[in-house]
Amino acid sequence: MRLTTDALTKRYDEFELSIPDFEIEPGTAVGLVGNNGAGKTTFLRLALDLIRADDGEVMLDGDVVADVFDWKTRTGSYLGPSFLIDFLTPDEYWHFVWQTYDLDEATVNERLARFEDFYVDEPIGDTTKYICDLSTGNKNKAGLVAALLPEPDLLVFDEPFASLDPRSQIQLKEILQARRGDATMLVSSHDLGHVTDVSDRIAILEGGEIVRDEPTDPDTLEDLRTYFAEAIRPKETGPADAEA
């Protein structure tokens, strides 16, 4: 699924998100990084039509997301606890999600079995706790499993690695790496290492604008660390600068 923006703008009181012409080719994984308040979550919500844009639009395979419904059947997303139904158990929640995507039970059971090592709080198929009583990490796992279950063409995640234990972070990274090429992915994360590992491209969002957008390579992680470190450390001046 191809994601494109066309003069996309969203304004808040003293902030404006402006992404005039951003494109994610089908099967490409893009990591979205930036400081707090840069507009990452806003952009993801615009992509999922959870926020109304002030100008412009987001399109999936040429269809404006605000005008068309069908893209939802091919999209899986998890942006945080608001994507959970906390009075359900994880099994009931996944059951609800699979019905929404018109999956049959046999397919779902087969796919859920692949997450048995990932969601380990209770055996899948035998969960008894309500989602509201799970730890933050297990809540996130329940939401991630629900997003991955339909094996959608587009995956949108906001801070998927947050609150996961180290083993689960590695497992999630492997799951996402396995999906590269098959699904278009848009992953926002503050974990520079993980997001670099799962992405074909990294886009840096700053002050509501994409200031850098480049393919990942072995030096990308170091580049990102240097980029963000410069914001808190003054640049070192050479002798020529000092004399001037």
């Binding site: 999922l48 959870l50 999209t75």
Partner: peptide
């Protein structure tokens, strides 16, 4: 309201 995002982001007509 607590799961409104679920209703709108997922393919619920």
């Amino acid at each position: 309201s607590s799961y409104a995002d679920v209703l709108f982001a997922h393919p619920h007509r």
